[in-house]
Design a protein around this nucleic acid. Structure first.
Length: 147
DNA sequence: GCCAACGTTGGC
DNA sequence: GCCAACGTTGGC
């Protein structure tokens, strides 16, 4: 799960109420579908810092609420307002995640050269999705590296 | 700031 | 329904 730390960082999550946040603002259909169709209560997520000096995984989170309508799509004062959506047929959803723990930074550079991570979606050329699935095998390698 | 990659838009 | 143009993402 990608976030620009200047927008919302792992430290923001550490200090958030209940160390929990709604993952609002996703406005890409593929990423939305991953949240809606694949993410289930108790699933683990990797909190990734993007578009920053040191991109990489900065912490572990768990899904504490499954997909529900993202309220910012209805808020005309929000950057994430979508005039084409409506309450009867919400277009965008979010999940809530809770901090498991902040980790040392596992940099993109390190992940790129690790033999066990070559299949990771986030490393593929042209990858732009803010939400991508991680396989059990990949998760095991990541957990090992983050220990 | 550059640029590759990809998604979205809108005219036809 | 095609596809060119445009916008966005995000690493470097």
């Amino acid at each position: 799960m990608k976030s620009e730390p200047s927008e919302f960082s792992i430290d923001d999550l550490v200090s958030a109420k209940g160390q929990t946040t709604g993952w609002f603002g996703v406005r890409n259909y593929q990423a939305r579908n991953f949240m809606r169709d694949e993410m289930r209560l108790g699933d683990m997520g990797f909190f990734y810092h993007s578009s920053c000096p040191e991109p990489g995984i900065a912490g572990l989170v768990t899904v504490c609420n499954e997909a529900y309508p993202d309220p910012t799509q209805f808020d005309s004062s929000s950057d994430y307002f979508d005039p084409k959506s409506n309450e009867e047929a919400p277009r965008w959803v979010q999940v809530d995640v809770r901090l498991i723990r902040k980790t040392k930074l596992l940099s993109l550079a390190v992940m790129r050269v690790h033999p066990g991570l070559q299949t990771l979606r986030i490393l593929q050329k042209g990858n732009r999705l803010s939400i991508t699935p991680v396989t059990e095998e990949e998760a095991a390698v990541l957990n090992e590296l983050l220990t």
